[in-house]
Nucleic acid binder design. Structure first.
Lengths: 353, 353
DNA sequence: GTGAAAGCGCTAACAG
DNA sequence: CTGTTAGCGCTTTCAC
């Protein structure tokens, strides 16, 4: 039953040379786009012979010789999460433009796999790795960096002069939201968040506060509503429920604010849903701003005004930094923060007088 | 300015051999996990030397020698679409278990890029490609298959005895939905869909009809509601709006059915939203079933009962078929259809008597 | 302008 | 059990 059909051996550079009555060296020069001078006649013969033989250069041979794979490794928790999917697409776009291929690894948050992936990628001779994952063994990574591996961290603290880093500017995002709300005439704002154990959640709050301060205002501590419940079930389901719970607490507040910033869109949408269920109109009775700009934000009614972290751009920049490092460019742009941007939809309005 | 720090040359197999006072062959045997007998003492010395030198085998060298990269190529439109993201994650899980790496390519629906990707992957000596993209040059693909490339198509018509294929069983999905509705006592059902220019939309309808027939029922043609509007704007936004329009038409029907199957979740959710806005209760006044099981389906109120195509499983099977083909396994399982599954939530209920 | 030859790092005969 | 050797497909001196 083992009917392994014999395939015609793939043509190699010698085959092409023979057919074009030339030599491997010259074929290589022509087909790899070298600038080395080759006569027009010879060039034509070679191109023709290659076409006839259906020749495709073996990249492995080239890689071994040149010691340059033109590939980068990318490690993320999982592209099932749209945020990472966007980043990866951004990375790939940039990589494609620069002529690099991408080796993608989803760790699914398994620390063991993560380390294994780093090792495998290094073995495959990628010269650079972009990663957004916390559990990697940094000691090992350092060791590999000493052997020439370039590393760019995405949305992560630990970095150093030898690594690149692309950060998300949550503080700026919080400021953006505050600026939008305050300049729309809101004099009292609330912040909705799940427990403050993630950097993003606290930094958004920081920015929110900061912008208030910059405008001579302050955020009433009683208006910072932190959900107590632990994260059970799936993340987004949890966040949605969290938004509903916080909305109920919000409605019970005396001297209730006229606007809310939520730490992320799912919380905002949960809150909006609860408001609607209780006859509180968004944006007439209360304005809501989210964070993340997930697809859903454009679908709910009213559309959710939210802060977009520009994940695509994050990927692009990460890749750019990485490739620059690999190609020995100046490391000036090694540490970037991507500026988030406010997307206005219908969930914010000036408060009633 | 060109401060290219000199990195210590990576150790190679000769370095390890020298340090362990052995030979490259033996080092290879030990470090590549060959079953070739090597004395314990020697083995230990080699492992130790490798560790001291921080040795990582160069996979490129091995690939060139063995003519086996242990890598597969994956081509999809874009992982920004969660459906494809799920598939890719499924592929990768399976690939990881089987010891294969993955080269991911997002075509972003650019036909030119698609062909280029196929070529590049082939040049990189992947022995197999899984692809879910329509625009590939099939003539070229056939040519590469003749050179031994294995191909698995995902959710696509054109296939043949030489290629693998993993299909989605939309017909079965439609049947599942009908069975659920009918056995819950619904005697009159409707189908909501965007224009019938996609295979999925017509096959789901087919299945829906078929199951009716199998139970001696029939689907009233006037209850097949097809949106006329062309797809403008973003896909999911369009579908959402489409659901709302169809819901309005549905409510105007005389002898209105008690249940609805939507061609996909976004349409179903749009319809639910419209129903709610018009005081029609789901599931009390009308039951709704969706298709796709997107994350959102579990978040809306009531939860949307829907057909899950099991994209993750699709990816797994695609990869399994591919690797089997690459490893010369029997091709029995070459053409698979993945059985969808009904996920029950709160949007379906027996109709009022 | 062209070709011969060496060699990238590894594994697999083969010989001992 | 261990080592020597050849060579995977390519690029790149170097010599002509």
């Amino acid at each position: 039953m083992s009917e392994s059909v014999e395939h015609p051996r793939k043509a190699n550079i010698h085959d092409v040379a023979r057919r074009a009555e030339s030599s491997p060296a010259t074929v290589s020069r022509v087909l790899s786009g070298s600038s080395y001078p080759v006569s027009e006649a010879m060039r034509r013969r070679i191109v023709e012979a290659a076409a006839e033989l259906n020749y495709t250069a073996n990249a492995i041979g080239r890689m071994l010789k040149t010691n340059d794979t033109h590939e980068i490794g990318v490690i993320v928790p999982t592209i099932a999460n749209p945020f990472y999917a966007q980043i990866v697409v951004g990375i790939e776009k940039e990589a494609k433009e620069r002529g690099y291929g991408m080796l993608l690894c989803n760790t699914l948050r398994d620390a063991t796999d993560e380390d294994r992936y780093v090792e495998t990628l290094f073995g495959k001779q990628v010269m650079g790795i972009a990663l957004s994952s916390v559990a990697v063994d940094h000691a090992r990574l350092r060791a590999l960096q000493r052997k020439g591996l370039k590393v760019v961290f995405i949305d992560q603290e630990p970095s150093d002069a030898n690594s690149g880093k692309v950060g998300l500017d949550f503080i700026r995002g919080g400021m953006l939201a505050a600026a939008h709300l305050l300049s729309n005439g809101h004099r009292s704002c609330a912040y909705f968040t799940a427990p403050l154990d993630k950097r993003s959640r606290v930094e958004v709050l920081e920015g929110f506060r900061l912008e208030h301060a910059l405008r001579g205002r302050s955020l009433d501590p009683r208006h910072v509503l932190v959900d107590e419940r632990e994260e059970e079930s799936e993340e987004s389901v949890y966040e949605f429920e969290c938004g509903r719970r916080l909305a109920r607490r919000f409605l019970a507040l005396t001297g209730r604010p006229t606007a809310v910033l939520a730490a992320n869109d799912m919380i905002a949408i949960g809150a909006m849903q609860e408001f609607a269920a209780r006859g509180v109109s968004v944006p007439d009775d209360v304005s809501v701003v989210g964070y993340d700009n997930i697809m859903l934000a454009s679908l709910v009614r009213p559309g959710l005004t939210t802060v977009d972290p520009r994940s695509n751009e994050i990927g692009r920049l990460a890749c750019r930094a990485l490739v620059d490092m690999m190609e020995g460019e100046t490391p000036e742009i090694r540490h970037v923060k991507v500026e988030p941007v406010l997307v206005e939809r219908g969930s914010v309005k000036r408060p009633r007088a």
